[in-house]
Design a protein around this nucleic acid. Structure first.
Lengths: 158, 158
DNA sequence: TTGTGTGGTTGCAATATTAAACCTGATGCT
DNA sequence: AGCATCAGGTTTAATATTGCAACCACACAA
């Protein structure tokens, strides 16, 4: 009766959710992408129980989203920072943010807007483009079976 | 000791997760965006317990992501379809998919690729652009406090 | 060396998830 | 119409996860 795992699922959406799709992980990742690094920072910012935070940090490290590094202030403690795999989650955070900005019933309760660092102007909405540059909506896309990977010819003829 | 709610949070990421951030909701939304509409279709596709599916469908309807409509085949049953607010989740699904495509350890287990319906070619990666058209990464962005909403002048002078 | 802050672990109560049995109304068959 | 079956749930009971608080160990500061 364990929580059902999505790890073996063939759907890439499910596979992503299996890695960080629980109630707290994405918020930890959000905090990490805002520069928070220490256990106590996460705990104070998120207000979650310490045991939960401990297990979440552990599994995020196991799964290659975060890694531990020696503390930047020279103390003997450790800090948690995003790996490249973790930084890759950024577009997902942006998409979540933009959905709330567009559809939330109380947009006045949103505290922040995302701006580009250079000009300080709000960023544009994430755009899905076709290879020839058209903007695509959900209805303009389909799923195709992934073409089979090339098998090693070398073995076939050996 | 309830599961802590994120509904009142000022972070738009947290607010989105409060609406569909649990273990099953996004998968239900994914299925809905693939055209599944019936209780039985969702249950067969996701393999989750029927009581869980029932509660998830109920809260997704409450929250304006799905709505119930009379069955398309003329039977007396009802079907669940995405509202505009639900369709707006599409970019999040794309972002999750693309993260798996880029970072998953076993990309050969991914069954499908997203293509544009017209040409059948794979879509491009979601791009975050500044207002002057530069492609932005996480490091090129910051958060700014949302400017206060204009208050009604009418009342101030009345 | 005594105290305090950081980063956890442990134990317990409350809640959520799960599977399976059960129920109800709609549909189909004859 | 009468009966079986199916779709769409609800209920029940076992198990797992969450949340809180108490505890603990080590680092660091005085």
């Amino acid at each position: 009766m364990k929580r059902t795992s999505l790890a073996g699922d063939s759907c890439p959406v499910a596979r992503a959710l299996d890695v960080f799709g629980d109630w707290w992980s994405l918020l930890i990742i959000r905090d990490a992408s805002l520069g928070r690094r220490r256990f106590g920072e996460f705990q104070a910012s998120l207000g979650l129980a310490k045991n939960i935070l401990a297990t979440r940090l552990r599994t995020l490290v196991e799964r290659g989203i975060l890694k531990t590094v020696p503390a930047s202030d020279g103390s003997a403690y450790q800090e948690y920072v995003l790996t490249p795999k973790g930084h890759g989650i950024f577009p997902i955070l942006v998409a979540l943010r933009q959905w709330t900005e567009e559809f939330d019933e109380h947009p006045d309760e949103i505290a922040t807007i995302m701006v580009d660092r250079d000009k300080g102007k709000p960023v544009k909405k994430l755009a899905l483009l076709s290879q020839d540059g058209r903007v695509l909506g959900a209805a303009d896309t389909t799923l195709k079976l992934r073409p089979a990977r090339k098998t090693a010819r070398r073995l076939a003829t050996a």
